[in-house]
Design a protein around this nucleic acid. Structure first.
Lengths: 118, 118
DNA sequence: TTAGAATATTCGCGCATGCGAATATTCTTG
DNA sequence: CAAGAATATTCGCATGCGCGAATATTCTAA
């Protein structure tokens, strides 16, 4: 390999963008939050989110391919779990950032913030 | 308004996804990093990234519309700056997460990591 | 082995996004 | 006002993404 520095940085940014892309979906964020509570089966996740099973499986596949979650067979079920708790940290930090943005703009803030802060 | 809790959480996830979407582009990440050094004109950013001016303006428009950067006229130039330094924190955390992912998978890691850690 | 439950995958569509090219806007200077 | 520099916007296109619907796979139990 031996790319020069600029190209290495570019490659890093490209991969980072791909990671952020994975986090750029509300259903996937919700799945990450749920898995933050502990391992869960697909059916549980579908029930908790109120989404169709196929949709949940599709999003779990994305998370799995990117290495954010790990799947384990347990009988007829598949138990999913986070591979790294710091994924939650990233989610929480971006959410903090978002909440500050909302506060600054003063838009939507009250309705969304209720029950999340204060 | 007065949404129930689940809907409020959903709305929050939706907005968070939109924020992550903004961070899910390598050029925008590079712009954020550059602006982390201080305010810069569009031309500077175009030069530093080696990208066409129109492309930079387009991405800056996205960052501006989402409230991540602030623009100020200075003569014939527009000086852009971060509205919140913690945007950098978010970028750096996701990058840390990415680097750990790469280390775990052992793929690309060496070439990308050189000069970034160690 | 067959039935059925749990999960995964494929397909097609509608929609958003990033880009280059071209053009428009806004400011400064003469 | 005219010319030109700096920046913004528009347009058209190619590509990617999320979704529902349908189907396939994989395991358990009888």
């Amino acid at each position: 390999m031996n790319l020069d520095e600029r190209e290495r940085r570019r490659e890093l940014y490209r991969l980072q963008a791909m990671l952020c892309q994975v986090l750029a979906d509300p259903t996937r964020i919700e799945l990450i939050e749920l898995l933050g509570e502990g391992p869960k089966a697909v059916k549980e996740l579908a029930q908790a989110t109120g989404q169709r099973q196929a949709k949940i499986s599709q999003h779990l596949a994305v998370l799995r391919q990117r290495g954010l979650v790990h799947a384990q067979r347990v009988g007829t079920e598949m138990h999913y779990s986070l591979t790294d708790r710091r994924i939650l940290d990233a989610c929480h930090l971006t959410r903090e950032l978002l909440l500050d943005q909302l506060l600054r703009q003063g838009e939507f803030a009250e309705s969304v913030l209720l029950g999340e802060r204060g």
